[in-house]
């Protein structure tokens, strides 16, 4: 069997990769007790950055008291995602520096500035929503739904409904 070929292959079936991600979650919970998630790390890192500017403010903030601005398991996991994606894309040769995704270009033309601005604004809206909902598609979507949590199923419906509503407007011409 060509083991190396599996890792250098450009694409795996989403069912196989997704199934393995589910097994990875179960293994993580078994070994360390940690459920996969991502959005809390953005709070911790934002807190660490804010602390450089206004240390007093961060210390007194009620939310940063709950989610201490420090590097812990999940922050390391999120950094690991970056590393894993880098390794995988280098192995398969589809690492590519680019600012404008193909679908965006087809709809809005080659507009890097507009793309970057929309990504920034969208990112801030998204994370604000994730913290209000209590998680993102990893924490609520995969980890929460797998525990059959009521909150996660409700949040998941919100993610998809909100996303479809806006995406269909953006790409209505298609």
């Amino acid at each position: 069997m060509d083991v190396k070929g599996i890792f250098t292959r450009e694409e795996w079936s989403p069912y196989v990769a997704g199934g393995l991600a589910g097994a990875l979650l179960a293994l993580s919970v078994l070994v360390t007790g940690k459920f996969l998630g991502a959005s809390t790390s953005f709070v911790r890192v934002a807190g660490m950055l804010e602390k450089l500017l206004w240390p007093q403010k961060v210390v007194q903030n009620a939310y940063f008291m709950k989610k201490a601005p420090a590097v812990e398991w999940q922050v390391m996991m999120v950094l690991g995602i970056l590393m894993g994606a880098f390794i995988s894309s280098r192995l398969s040769g589809d690492f590519l520096f680019t600012l404008v995704p193909p679908l965006w270009e087809e709809r809005f033309g080659h507009t890097p500035l507009k793309r970057v601005l929309v990504a920034f604004v969208g990112g801030s809206v998204l994370l604000f929503g994730a913290r209000l909902a209590g998680g993102c598609p990893s924490g609520h979507g995969i980890s929460g739904v797998s525990q059959l949590s009521v909150s996660s199923m409700v949040a998941m419906v919100g993610f998809v409904a909100g996303g479809i509503l806006v995406a269909r407007r953006l790409y209505s011409r298609r």
Binding site: A119, S124, A133, A155, G158, F159, A161, G162, L165
Partner: peptide, 14 residues
């Protein structure tokens, strides 16, 4: 959960 989810969705599409 629902309001945050919807707000997330709006940002996600962007």
């Amino acid at each position: 959960n629902l309001m945050g989810g919807l707000i997330f969705g709006v940002g996600w599409a962007l």
